[in-house]
Structure formats: structure tokens, C-alpha cells
């Protein structure tokens, strides 16, 4: 009954409000459009920043793998003994500071070296009490790790975990 009244009512009571309703719809449409646009841009910006950080992490990971001081008996091997010396708390402080010397203070990262079987792991960090939480971008390089003096070689991974730079 009420519906039929609404349709048959010819007093045009609602007539002046039609443009308000249509304007409201345009405004809502525009707000949704702007929200989608800004969300898309923010996602793109975040992804490009992550990609940029990943490239830097990959660069450092390749650099770490090729660092002469941690090489084993051959150039393509990583020495577990050398890793032991620079894993925190560093047994060889000079070697540890040499390892990080060439990196700028912007390169806020730590290196995680693990054997694939999970039996050995080394964390090389610049500072002893560094936090390993927060936004981190990681890049890994497969390596072969030379364990002990009997030259037992096991496959492993060198992972560089780069903490996101807060000022960019």
C-alpha cells in the first residue's frame, strides 16, 4: 500500500531531492575512485621500495659470498672456521670489524649462514645487541660450507637480511 502511494503521489515532494541523491552518488563514486587510486599507488610504492631493498640485499649477499677472508681452501668454499671467528660474540674482533668496515652505516643488515641440513648456523651482525625484528628484506645465495679440518663440505645458504631503511 505504501509503495503504491509513493508511486501515485504526484505532489513531487521528492523532486527537488533527486539532484542531491545523484550528487551524493557522484561524491561517493569519486571518493571510492580516489581511495582505490591512492591504495594502488601506495602498494606500487611499497613494492618498488621492497624491490629496491631486495636488490641491495642481493648485492650484499653476493659480496659476502665472495669476501676473501671467509673463503675456505678453495675460492668457491666458505670456511666454517672463519665464520666461527666473526659470529657474534666475535672471537676475532679485528676480523669482524674488517668484515663490516667497507659497508656504510646505511647498510643495516645481518648475515645468516646455515647448512641445508640445519646442523650448523652462524649469525654475523654488526652489533651484539641488534634487534632482528621489524621490516626485513632478505636475499639468499647457495654456497658450499667447509666444516672443520677434515674438509667435509656441506651445502648451505648465505642469507643477507636487510633492515628497511627508516629515512627513505
Amino acid at each position: 500500500m505504501s509503495t503504491s502511494l509513493f508511486i501515485s503521489d504526484e505532489k513531487a515532494f521528492m523532486e527537488p531531492h533527486n539532484d542531491i541523491i545523484s550528487t551524493a552518488m557522484i561524491v561517493i563514486g569519486f571518493v571510492i575512485f580516489a581511495a582505490i587510486l591512492s591504495k594502488t599507488y601506495l602498494t606500487y610504492d611499497d613494492n618498488s621500495l621492497s624491490l629496491e631493498n631486495y636488490r641491495q640485499a642481493a648485492l650484499i649477499a653476493n659480496d659476502v659470498v665472495g669476501y676473501p677472508a671467509i673463503q675456505g681452501s678453495r675460492q668457491d668454499l666458505i670456511s666454517a672456521y672463519a665464520l666461527d671467528s666473526i659470529t657474534m660474540p666475535a672471537a676475532d674482533r679485528e676480523m669482524h670489524s674488517d668484515f663490516f668496515q667497507r659497508f656504510s652505516s646505511n647498510a643495516d643488515f645481518f648475515v645468516d649462514v646455515r647448512t641445508d641440513d640445519g646442523s650448523h648456523a652462524w649469525i654475523i651482525d654488526r652489533y651484539e645487541a641488534s634487534s632482528h625484528d621489524g621490516d626485513i628484506i632478505a636475499a639468499s645465495v647457495p654456497v658450499v660450507i667447509e666444516l672443520g679440518n677434515n674438509a667435509r663440505c656441506v651445502p648451505g645458504t648465505v642469507t643477507v637480511r636487510l633492515r628497511k631503511n627508516k629515512w627513505i
Partner: peptide, 26 residues
């Protein structure tokens, strides 16, 4: 500089810029 590179551009009195941190000591 030793820590970052900066690139900027000025147009109609408005300045656009981008700064990127360097990973190695420079």
C-alpha cells in the same frame, strides 16, 4: 656525499627530489 646520493629538479619554483642511501663507504 659519504652516505647518500641526491637528485633534484626544479620547475616553476617547485623542487622535486630523490635521495638514496649508499651501501658502501664513499
Amino acid at each position: 656525499s659519504g652516505e647518500y646520493v641526491s637528485v633534484s629538479f626544479e620547475e616553476n619554483g617547485r623542487r622535486y627530489g630523490s635521495v638514496k642511501p649508499l651501501m658502501y663507504k664513499t
